[in-house]
C-alpha cells in the first residue's frame, strides 16, 4: 500500500512544495535546483514519449496482424516511423553526427541532415496543408452553425465577419475605418473577456495544484490499489 499509493503522493507533495519554496529563495543554489528540476522533468517526459510510441507501434502491429480494414496504411506508419527515427538518431537532428560523417565522408558538418530533409520537404508541407484544409471546412461549418438564431450568435457572427474582413485589403476597400474597428474590438471587449477567462484558468490551475500537492486529488495515479 505504501509503495502503491502513499509513496507516489509523497513524491508529488515533496517536489511540489520544494519547487514552490525555491521561487521565494533568491539564492544561486535555489536557481541551480530549479534548473536541475527542469532538466529532470524533461528527462522523465522523454520516457513518457517512448511509452506513447510503444502504444502506437503496438496498435499498428495489431492492425496488420489482424488484417483489419486499411491495415496497409499501418505499414506506411511503421516504415515512416522507423526510417525517420533511424535517420534522426544516426544521422543527427540539426547537424550530421560524427558516425554519419564517417559512413559518408562527403558529408560536411554544415550539411543539412537527412532528418531535416524529411522535416522540411515532407512533414512541414503536409502539416501546413492539413491546417490549410480547415479554411474550407471552417467556412462551411460556420455557415451551418452561426446562423443568427440568437443575440449572442449574431454577435459572434458579426465580430468574426468584421475581424476577418478588417484584416484584408478588401475590408479597407469596403469601409476605410474597418481596420480601426477591428483594432478597437481586439483592444477592449476581446481583451476584457480573454483576461477574464485567463484569470479563471489561473485560479483553476492554482486550486488543482494545491489539491495535488496536499494529496486530495490523486486521480492522476490511475485506478486500482
Amino acid at each position: 500500500m505504501f509503495v502503491r499509493r502513499t509513496l507516489p503522493l509523497l513524491v508529488s507533495a515533496v517536489f511540489g512544495v520544494a519547487l514552490i519554496l525555491q521561487f521565494f529563495v533568491p539564492h544561486p543554489a535555489s536557481k541551480n535546483f530549479y534548473n536541475m528540476m527542469l532538466d529532470w522533468l524533461i528527462i522523465v517526459s522523454a520516457f513518457t514519449y517512448l511509452i506513447a510510441v510503444q502504444s502506437t507501434v503496438e496498435l499498428h502491429f495489431t492492425k496488420i496482424k489482424r488484417k483489419v480494414e486499411g491495415w496497409q496504411y499501418s505499414i506506411i506508419v511503421l516504415i515512416a516511423l522507423f526510417v525517420t527515427a533511424f535517420l534522426g538518431v544516426f544521422g543527427g537532428a540539426f547537424m550530421p553526427t560524427t558516425l554519419w560523417m564517417k559512413i559518408f565522408p562527403s558529408v560536411k558538418p554544415s550539411d543539412t541532415t537527412p532528418l531535416m530533409y524529411t522535416y522540411l520537404y515532407m512533414q512541414m508541407p503536409m502539416q501546413s496543408t492539413i491546417f490549410s484544409l480547415l479554411a474550407f471546412y471552417m467556412a462551411s461549418a460556420a455557415f451551418r452553425s452561426f446562423r443568427a438564431r440568437s443575440f449572442d450568435a449574431t454577435l459572434l457572427l458579426i465580430t468574426a465577419g468584421i475581424v476577418t474582413l478588417g484584416r484584408v485589403p478588401l475590408g479597407e476597400f469596403i469601409y476605410k475605418g474597418l481596420p480601426d474597428v477591428v483594432e478597437w474590438i481586439l483592444k477592449y471587449p476581446n481583451m476584457a473577456a480573454q483576461r477574464g477567462i485567463l484569470i479563471g484558468v489561473q485560479l483553476g490551475i492554482i486550486a488543482t495544484s494545491i489539491k495535488i500537492i496536499l494529496g486530495i486529488e490523486g486521480k492522476y495515479l490511475g485506478g486500482g490499489k
Binding site: V53, T56, I76, V77, L78, I79, A80, L81, F82, V83, T84, A85, F86, L87, G88, L115, T118, Y119, M122, Q123, M126, Q127, I130
Partner: peptide, 9 residues
C-alpha cells in the same frame, strides 16, 4: 505517412 514521420521526428 505524416503520423509516422511526426513520431519518428
Amino acid at each position: 505517412l505524416l503520423v509516422g514521420i511526426s513520431i519518428g521526428y
